[in-house]
Simulated scan of single mutants.
Amino acid sequence: MKETSTIGFEYIAEKMHEQQLQLDSALMRSIQETPGMRGEALPYQFRSEWSVTCLLLFCFLLLSYALKNGKKYIFQHLKSLFQHKERSSLFDDTSGSSNGAVVVLSSLTCVFYGLFFFCYSIEKFPSLVFVTPREAIIGMYVFVAFFYVLLKWGSYNFINWIFFEKEHKRRWIQAYFDTLCGQCLLLFPLILLLVYYNLDFHIGSIFMLFILVFAKILLYYKGFRNFFSQSYGFLHLILYFCALEMVPLLLLVKGILYINQIVILNF
């Protein structure tokens, strides 16, 4: 009787073990065969880039340094954009620190334009995020902006050296770099809004277009007062402005689009 009871309990335990193995096997098959819900990929965000954050922090430090050391010069020359003086005043600040502030602010303008080109390219060509390192793309756009500014500076010097007097040429170059300094002060908060506050890119583009058009209007006004103040010089001003302002700008836009296509196709 005792032996029969032991065999019965062993038989029941064995059957329970087999049943548990079957349940575990069925559970594993159901897990493997039933596909899980795929996660939705998070959209790319500019503020997630450590290179963008480091670059903007460095730009903030440079901007603070320039405003601290060249504040008098900057506000004096931004004010002069809306005025016209036949000759420079003896009280104008032309110290080395002021010239350094102009170089810093003009360089920061190129950096901000490069970051805006980066935002534009990622918005219009999302595949750029996956085909090449973002640091390389940002560096490429900043280099293009620097090259554009240097090319315009060289073309201004060459054309004005041929057709205009030295004093007129000096005032025009000063006006050009003053507009770059003014654009820097307007572009910095716009870039911060685009990167860290998720400002809609279309709204940001409208603000960017406003800044650019406002700068071109100021240059148009300065060019008219500096070079073509006579009424018969209006046609010459149109030719000068289109040749050295609008055509390079169109070439810049086409160049950015062409670079994006090359990067996407080759990488």
Rank of each mutant, 00 (worst) to 15 (best):
F117M: 08
L23P: 00
Y141N: 10
Q32P: 00
A101S: 15
Q45G: 02
F210M: 09
Q261C: 09
G154D: 06
K85L: 12
L218K: 15
H202Y: 02
Y176W: 12
L239R: 12
L193F: 15
F267M: 11
T6L: 13
P248K: 04
R29Q: 13
L192A: 05
G100S: 05
L192D: 00
E10C: 04
A66N: 09
T53G: 02
L237E: 07
A101F: 03
G204I: 04
F164R: 05
F210N: 05
L27W: 03
Q261R: 15
E33Q: 09
Q261N: 15
N226W: 04
D200A: 10
A101P: 05
L251M: 14
R47S: 12
D24C: 02
K166E: 15
M1T: 06
R170T: 10
L199C: 04
S106H: 02
L186R: 06
F177W: 07
V102K: 10
C54R: 11
L57N: 13
Q22G: 13
E40Q: 07
S64G: 10
I122D: 11
G100E: 03
C59W: 00
C184Y: 03
F163A: 06
I138M: 11
Q230A: 07
C110V: 01
S80T: 08
C184D: 06
I211H: 08
F267P: 06
T53P: 01
V253A: 13
E86I: 05
L105P: 01
L128E: 11
K124Y: 12
Q20I: 02
E49V: 00
L244V: 02
I173N: 14
Q174S: 14
E165R: 14
C242W: 01
L180H: 09
Q261K: 15
G223S: 14
V149D: 08
S155E: 06
G204T: 05
L90I: 08
L218F: 13
S231R: 11
L61Q: 06
A41E: 15
F118D: 02
I238L: 15
I256V: 12
C181W: 04
Y156G: 04
A66G: 09
I122W: 11
